[in-house]
Write a protein that binds this DNA or RNA. Sequence first.
RNA 1: GUGGCUGUAGCUCAGUUGGUUAGAGCACCUGGUUGUGGUCCAGGGGGUCGGGGGUUCGAAUCCCCUCAGCCACCCCA
Length: 427
Amino acid sequence: MKFQAIKGTRDFYPETMRLRNYIIDTWRRVSLRNGFEEYDAPILENLSLFTVKSGEEIAEQLFSFTDRGGRNIAMRPELTPSLARMVGAKINALPRPIKWFAVPRLFRAERPQRGRLREFFQWNIDIVGEESIQADAECIYTLIDFLREVKLTPADIQIHIGLRPAVSAMLTQYGVAEEAMDKAFLALDKKPKIPAEAFETMMTDLGLSAEQIQNITTFMDCPSEQAIQQLASIEGIDEHAENLQRLWDILTTMGVADYIRFDFHIVRGLAYYTGVVYEALAAGERAVAGGGRYDNLLQLVGGPAAGATGFGMGDVVLGILLDEKGKLPADLQSPSLDIFVIDAGENTAEAMLTLVGTLRERGLACDYSFKRAGVGKQLKEANRRGARSVVLIEQADLDAPDSLSIKTFATGSQTSMTQSEFLSSLG
RNA sequence: GUGGCUGUAGCUCAGUUGGUUAGAGCACCUGGUUGUGGUCCAGGGGGUCGGGGGUUCGAAUCCCCUCAGCCACCCCA
């Protein structure tokens, strides 16, 4: 074979396309029922839209090219800068609240590995212009609503919620210098995955004493149930602590608290998060979803001075998780047709085409065999094609008594009727 | 960018210490069961053994290079 798909990209044959559609259709359905509106932006953007936010080094991690006019063009690695651009252009004309979702196709020039490809789809949920924790709660609720929809239980996956300003204040209170803050966050992020000694070494390297490290460790390892009370020991974050309590109350009232836990290890890489941060984590997998509040980001990328909060969920890790947990719907295994029409009589080929046309016009997924074969062969094809029922045409005159036989595969039952009786039975 | 593992049919794999025309199951296609599907039976197509070079009388098998895939690290928007 001379050509193959580009590294890190996927061919979607019908079988895998059904999976992709299932995921995206579910994202869309859940978004809409939670009151979000869909938007999208171009796949191609100016390279500088991304470098202004993340620095020049980001250019190494995305696909870009120079067009014939000498402009630097990037294939978008994320959607948020485009969102900022779009919102910024019409900020005063947009009806509030701005609850938007998108399912962009994204590209990143990274080396592929489990759960990470170079081309993928990502569900984005964002609320712009609402500063209150209610907006964060709404996003997290929508995330959980999706998890429930795809049958992932609290035993399968948990949303770990952190609070970046509180952790920052805690680290300062326990002796971490301002210039060491980024490295301290990185250490906290890694802490659950590395040995305790390795974490202590990292913190010692930041100039912390054993006692300071112990204070930090004790704070971090606090159980979720005591996380909010514990915040009282940190100075200057009363407002954040109240927000976290409010978040808990909202999600409890809405009946999804069993999906969440507080976990201050969650700090999420880049520094632009300004409030709650969270990741949907399943055992043994990288994060299925991640997000938080980013009140300064829109302005940073040239957008309006408006607060925002939201999350992203990639299709790759999600697909792996659904597969391994056995949560993929069984009907993804085969194609589906409402009705397969079988030419079963003498000179009924033309009547078959007539009926197929009528059924399709009524909006039914309907097909027939290209081959003029025996009834057995046609039934075999109907079964292979995933038809729920078949209509056997017994007589060329579709209005004659018993001209049609209707057979339902699931039950094996079969009854005879005329075309008009059949059509009215469809409702 | 760094490191490890793996490449035989569309998929999962077998292939004896290097030895004749490289096999199986599944999938696919055709036919049969003589007007009723899933089962079953028979047959068929499909591989320059990832590619290139080398050793040898002879290489899927041994050596070198290369490409690809997977996994981990870095990073994670």
